[in-house]
Structure formats: C-alpha cells, structure tokens
Design a protein around this nucleic acid. Structure first.
Lengths: 342, 342
DNA sequence: GCTGGTTTGAGTAACGTTTTACGAATGTTG
DNA sequence: CAACATTCGTAAAACGTTACTCAAACCAGC
C-alpha cells in the first residue's frame, strides 16, 4: 500500500505529449490557437495518463467549473425536484454541482455556508429560498454570479425564479371555498422581518391566502409556525385546541401537511371526513396513495432548470440585465379535500 | 454597482497589521511561533478587513477544510439523518461540509462525483452506500481520507461504519413470524455483482432475510427491484399479480415501503388488515401518523456522527489502522404490522 | 559580559493552472 | 519576391497560500 504517487499535472501531460504546458491548457479550455493534430495528441496523453485538472489551481486564475446550490432543508421533499432540474441543465456541461446544506436554518448558518461556497471558488451559486437580509444577497451577487430561487423581489445584481405564490394560495382557497368550506385555516412559516415579509414565498402565500379569503367574504385564520413537519404538527395542535375547529386546513407546504396529518391522526380525526387538508409543492409525498394530498404544483424541476440556465447565462455574461422569472402554479386535487361535514 | 473590489488577501492583512504574511498564515492555522501580541494584532486586522481565506489557494499547499459527502439519493429520507450526525461533529470545527449528489445512481455518475470532490481538494470524503467497484474505493482511499458508510467489507485503506443488516433483517422476520405470518415476501434492491453481493446493505439484508426465514422453517420469497419509491411500487405490483398473495411484505427500506403502500392502496387492500408491511431505516416518514410503519432503526444520526469522527481522526493521522464500526439496529413496532387475516 | 539555547518573526520557494505577450512558421497579396 | 496577415505554439508571469530555512532577539546560567 505505497503512498499514492504524486498527482498527474498539466506538466506531465505536456511532457508526455511533447508540447508546452500552455498548449495543454488551451486544449483543456478549448481556447483559440490549437491545431487538430495537437489537440488529438494532447487528448491522447490526457486519457493515457488519466490526468484530471486540479480545481484549486484553476480557482487561482480562472474558473473551477463548479456551481453551488444552497439547500435550506434536506427533509423537504420539494427540493430534490428543483435539484433534478438543475442537474438536467448541467449534466452535459463541464460544470459540477455541489450542495451546501444549511439544516439549522438560521441566518448565520446560511451566511456561513454561502461564504464557504464563495471561498471555494464556485463559479456561480443558486440560492434556494435564502433567508439572509436583502443587502447581503446583493453583496453576494456582486462577488459571484447568483440566481435566487423562490424569493420574490427584483434586484439588479441577481436573477430570480419564483412561483406565483399569490395565485397558488388563491387556487387552494378557491378550491376549498368551492367545496363549501367557510372556515379555512392557514398554517404559515412565521415571519416578522419586513423585507422578508415582502419577499419570502411563505409570506406571499399567507398574504395571497388572506386576499383570497376576503375575496370570498371569508375571515382569514392564520397560525404561524414553520415550514417543517414539526411546524405543521404544532400548528395543527393549536387549531385542535380551539373550541371551534376549522373545516379545512391549508398548509403552506407539503412538509407542513405531513405534520398536520400526523396531529389529526393522533386526535382521531379523519381526512377529509372530519376535516380537509391541502398542501403546497406537490411533492412525491403528496402523490403517495395513503396520503393523497391536494396540493399546488409549482413544477420544481422546471424551476430548477430555469435557474440553472439563468446561472450559466450570467456566468457567460455578468453584465447582462437581470431577469425575473415567475411561473404559474397549478392545482392538483386529490383525496384529502372534500365538502365539509354537514 | 461598481465591479466588486479585489478580494482581501493575506498580504493585505499582513500590511494592515504590520507583520509578515508568514505571521498571518501562522495565526490562521494557529501554528507554532506566534506571540499573543502578534496574534491579537493579526486577528484584529482580519476582522477589520473582513478577510476570508481562499480555499483554492490553500488547496495548492495544505488543506481546504472541506469534507465531501456523497449522497446517493436525496429522496431517501434516511440520508438527512446521517447528515445531521455528520453536522453535529463538524459544526464546531473549521471544516465545512459539501454534498455531492449522485441522483442518477449509476456507477459512472457516482465515480464522476467522487472524482469531482477529489479534484476540488476535499480533505476527506464520506461515501454513503457507494456502488463503485471495490478496487475503485481502495484507489480513492489512497488519494484522500475516506470513510465508507453502509457498505460492509474490511479494507486497509478506508474506515467503515455500517449497521448489522443481518440482525436487522432477522428482527423483522422474527417479529412477523411471531405474529403468525408464514408467507413473508421481501423486496430487495437488485444486485448481481458478486462483490457488491457481499458488501452492499441491500444484499446483506436480503441474505439475512433468507437465513431468518429458514431458521423459522419458512420459504423465502424475494422480489428484486430497487431501493426507491418506484422500486417498491413495482415490487408490490409483481406480488399482487400472483395468484396467492403473501400476508406480509418486508420492504428493504422505508422509501421502498412508500411505494408498496402506494400499490396496496391502489389495489384496495388495507394495511395491516389484509397485509402487513414493514420497512427499514425508521425514517421520519415511518413515524408519520397516517403511515405508522413498523421499521428497523439503524440510528442514522449516530452513524453519521461516527463516520465524521473517524474521518477527522484519519485526516489527523493517515497511517492509523482502519476501523470497522458495526452498529446494532433495533425494531420499532408500529401499526403497519399485525397478525395475518384469519 | 559571554555562551548556548529557545522564541519570534521574516524571506522565499513551491503548489498547478491560466493568461499575456510574443516568436516562428505558414499562407496571401501586391 | 517582398510585405504582410494569419495560425500555431512557447515562455514567463501571475494567482493566494503554506512550509521550509534562517536570522534576530531574548533569556538563563556561568
């Protein structure tokens, strides 16, 4: 088990192919000024020696061919959909995706992960529903090409891709009201920061819910917890503690609905017999037979694909004006919603 | 929106603190030969200038303080548990975790992601249930400190952390047999490669199932698909197509059980009334009220924590003999299993 | 006050790549 | 055939950090 031999470098390849290191570098980046003959020679040597470019060294001068994706919560089954979309776009490029997990969803932790990605020379980053303050986002975007997913608000520094959460919330409320529900509660991710209130999807969904309820002449009823399973569980428990139960619960995310179903099951209530439940994101979980959750589909894969494409565009041209892509969600009706009990 | 100012380097810090760059470097790595006075001065300058070390440059000489974790499937809810454990251990160190997603679970794709992590100068890697050939693993481990999680087989090059899958499978079979089941089917992740047959958890579970069945004097009945939701769905459909149904299904992973439940629901069968279902991994999904899946707990968080600790150890001393940690699983009985219908 | 040892800090050469500038062929035009 | 583009390839200088070598400053103990 001898200590591994030194890594093969561009110099080794150059020597083997009998050309200069510059020539090898040019071939690698398929830059201008390489004859087919030379290209072939170099590529043969690369293959024979098993050369692999050293990203660290590359980072010092040019690109690393790496893009980082900030994932706020690995337990939320919506995010893999987005990542699939990113992967679709990047699979056939030289770029490699690395994920920055920020499970403990604090602002500090998130900022730390983003900084770490920048320090590691990522050519660009996709930030999924980041919670750091707006100016911080702008600062990041000035350092590295950035696409922000699922957070509204126009910036001149970064592109955004988001779902029309106002419309999505309305889809649910319209559906439930159409079934005859008058008392529809909403469980949201708690938010006080004024900027995030205007930008984060959770806040927009809550606001959309409120507007839609009023449009139907109904009273909004919001419980604030978090977009996690536990948040859903706690939120539902708060509702269950009431003297008068709602006849339907609109959970701000499928993962929240998981917790809601948990609490309702525990309380011995049947869905949708006693109470209807709707989610948001149309994750694989919602589609699951025993669950069969009515949900709003925001086409995560498409969102991810769009984000990746925008990012590649921006890496290619950092001066291009920023884009704001807004996608329209659709309603997927399943068995967790029905007319309220008589 | 002026083009971002040049990155602050160690040289800027040195100038600002009026010391040499060497001194700054020493403080950063808290190496030998720094007086408290100097350390304070340097740290003040670092804070004031907002200096951040450039990982690419570091990669060329020393460490990058980055560890990579290969995650085979982001939709399997077991993996976040492992990652939590890794995070627990690394949170208070200088190390940063980055995830390499390998969704399309081919050998090629996996090898590509691992290579990418090595190229990017990771100080160490944790490979979760890797499928690449054994010699490839050895080669990787010779290049970079490596811990392999959930794959059995002793190596002199890398450490391993795994669950005792033989015992885990027996727990399920014993439980179901104890309830009176005679016809217990198992859905496994298909495997033909002889080395993986001896090392991969799926293969060991299947073998453990077979052994336990025989110990009870029962006939094994195995369906081969994959450890995904779709795999579970297809496997269950194959079983449902039979003239004689099993009275219980042991799914090799919770994520497989998701698909099984899906298929059974679709077929109008009730669980556990018509048929019992058990999973493996005891994910949050299994605990979910409406699901309430009997499962085997292999303490993912603990596995992840152990892996991270072993990795740090090995980064500190690459010559230390390798360790093989095997953890004992426990059975968690819920409502998806019951005595077979009379 | 000198010796010998220990701290403390500085100077400098890598590390592997890209980039800029430039020379040597080769082809093209008047 | 001279003058000039064009193409192909090379040399050398960065990039930001760490590790190695070595000098200066300091401290005992005689």
């Amino acid at each position: 088990m001898q200590p591994q031999s030194r890594r093969i470098t561009i110099v080794d390849v150059a020597r083997h192919a009998q050309v200069s290191t510059t020539a090898v570098s040019k071939v690698l980046r398929n830059a201008y000024g390489t004859s087919p003959t030379m290209r072939a020679k170099v590529q043969a040597s690369i293959a024979e020696l098993g050369y692999r470019p050293h990203a660290g060294a590359r980072a010092m001068r040019g690109q690393t061919y790496t893009v980082g994706v900030l994932v706020p919560d690995l337990r939320n089954p919506f995010f893999p959909d987005i990542l699939d979309g990113v992967d679709d776009q990047l699979r056939d490029t030289d770029y490699q995706v690395l994920l920055g997990p920020s499970h403990c969803n604090g602002e500090r932790a998130e900022a730390r992960v983003i900084d770490a990605m920048i320090d590691r020379g990522m050519d660009g980053v996709v930030l999924i529903a980041p919670v750091v303050p707006r100016p911080h986002l702008e600062r990041i975007a000035r350092m590295v090409p950035t696409v922000v997913v699922g957070r509204h608000g126009r910036s001149t520094a970064y592109d955004t891709v988001a779902d029309d959460d106002t419309a999505g919330a309305a889809l649910i409320v319209d559906h439930l009201a159409g079934l005859g529900h008058r008392h529809i509660a909403h469980i949201e991710h708690h938010e006080t920061n004024p900027i995030r209130l205007a930008e984060m999807p959770n806040a927009i969904r809550a606001e959309g819910y409120r507007a839609a309820m009023q449009a139907h002449g109904l009273d909004p009823d919001i419980v604030s917890t978090s977009y996690t399973r536990d948040g859903g569980y706690l939120g539902a428990q708060q509702l269950l503690a009431r003297s008068r139960l709602p006849t339907a619960i609109f959970a701000g995310a499928d993962v929240v609905a998981m917790g809601v179903l948990e609490a309702l099951t525990e309380a011995g209530l049947s869905v949708p017999g006693d109470i209807s439940v709707a989610g948001y994101d149309n994750t694989a979980f919602a589609a699951l037979g025993p669950i069969s959750l009515t949900s709003v589909d925001q086409a995560g894969r498409h969102i991810g694909g769009t984000a990746a494409r925008l990012l590649l565009d921006r890496i290619a041209d950092r001066e291009r004006p920023t884009a704001q892509v807004k996608l329209s969600p659709t309603l997927v009706v399943r068995h967790s919603t029905a007319a309220p009990p008589a």
